[in-house]
Computed example of a mutant assay.
Amino acid sequence: MIDAAPNPRLGRYIETPVAGETVRAFVPPPLPPDPPIDVLGLIDRLSLAERALGRLDGITMLLPRQELFLYMYVRKEAVLSSQIEGTQSTLSDLLRFETEAQDGEPIDDIREVSNYVDAMMHGLERLDTLPLSLRLIREMHGRLLQSGRGETKAPGEFRRTQNWIGGSRPGTALFVPPPVSELETCLDALERFFHDETSRLPALIRAGLIHVQFETLHPFLDGNGRIGRLLVTLYLCVHGVLRSPLLYLSLYLKTHRAEYYRLLQDVREKGDWEAWLDFFLTGVTETANQAFDAATRIVDLFKEDRERITSDSARAGSALRVHDWFEQAPFLTSGQLVERTGLTAPTVNAALADLERLGIIEEFTGRKRGRVFRYHRYLEILNEGTDPVGTS
């Protein structure tokens, strides 16, 4: 009897000493997978995902303030991606922190989310002058961990020690990434795949492959999940699948995290890339459709509220100017509005009273001084799905 040939999709294990124990560290084969991905079996999922992305791209081109939607959506992704890693901050926490309207929140959690926004925007801006590369990934990582709990975890540097995933010690780990001796070779191969055109795989398929490979290499001491999720959107922007960076999978992965982790492990242990890609493309479709729906409802909300102000406010001109700023920042104080609108304090306060009467904004601190107003219906749309892990 002839033994079946080994599956070239499977990696190899290297026995590695870690913290007084010997563990089996996994080294994946380079991308693309061999045998090749069965794209034909994924064609229906791929078509739905591409159609959903095209629809999202179309609506964002029609948004009156595309940069505002991007501003909020990037922050929502930052919150969700950080929640997967264990932070408890909400989108409202972050927005209030950014407008200096909040005291007493868990500052480390909010700082981590704020750092993620900074890392994401840095990566998107650098794509104008720098290709998607290991250098860019290190730059983003440096910003991600620049302050807070991650600043002792070698920000901007690939790891020089062995890490592991799950388990209280290396010997009980669920997964052990490649040893340091293999990491540079694996990362070089991944960077080459960023720019590979020989496989002729659709960009969405390649983005799904890149995400898993990065998570498997786990090249940093901390922040691998957040950078790995961000890579998907960066890659799709580089290859023209998205004109605006509005696809973020963290809500889908947060909702289905048990299946997500299982499928990552099935790629490593069984070479089952197709099951992962089916899941990934479904996530792209659902996420793009959710973003399309949110964008549509936000546009409708702004239009409806501005029409109500025009028809029902006794001071429509100033109320519209104040509303304009609430579209940009859902939490504001009267002092901030005086500074930003150029209106006098009595005029701003009268406009705020009018917007409260119309039910468009609400004051929620109950304080006499330093009152904070919020655009609550706008926040409800933005906050969907952003309860911390374990509370929803």
Rank of each mutant, 00 (worst) to 15 (best):
T282Q: 15
D387I: 03
D278A: 14
L134F: 04
A119F: 05
K153T: 03
G54Q: 11
S47G: 10
A5C: 12
L80C: 07
L94M: 01
G208I: 13
R374A: 10
G86Q: 07
L332W: 09
Y260I: 10
G41T: 01
F302W: 13
R138V: 00
E339W: 07
L40F: 12
D300N: 14
L236P: 06
D387G: 06
L145E: 04
L174V: 10
E380G: 02
Y248A: 01
G167D: 01
V18A: 11
F280H: 13
P36M: 03
E125Q: 10
E362D: 14
I107K: 02
E197T: 11
A25Q: 06
P202E: 02
L190H: 00
L134M: 08
E15V: 09
G223P: 06
P33R: 08
V39A: 12
G225N: 02
S311H: 11
R374Q: 13
S250I: 05
V241L: 09
R374C: 11
F280P: 12
A295L: 13
P8M: 08
L68T: 15
H239N: 13
G41I: 01
L46S: 11
L42N: 03
H211G: 00
A314Q: 14
E363H: 12
L379R: 05
G54C: 10
A314G: 15
T287R: 05
E362G: 04
N289S: 14
G385W: 11
M72C: 05
P178L: 00
F292S: 13
L352F: 07
H323V: 07
S311W: 10
G208N: 07
D300H: 09
K270A: 09
V348G: 08
T333D: 07
P32W: 09
L134P: 05
T341E: 10
E15L: 11
E21N: 10
L246V: 15
E98S: 03
G335L: 10
E384R: 13
F279G: 13
V238Q: 10
Y261L: 15
P28T: 04
F214E: 06
R192A: 12
S250C: 03
R111Q: 04
W164K: 01
M121N: 14
H376R: 12
R159H: 06
L70V: 13
L320G: 01
L124H: 09
L217Q: 02
E85Q: 03
L204W: 00
I107G: 02
R308M: 12
V338P: 08
E327N: 11
A173N: 02
A291Y: 05
R96G: 02
R321L: 14
L264C: 06
F326Q: 08
R315S: 13
P170M: 05
A275S: 15
L190T: 00
H376K: 15
E105Q: 05
P29R: 08
D44E: 13
T333I: 08
Y248F: 14
A4L: 14
I37H: 00
E356W: 06
E304F: 04
L236Q: 01
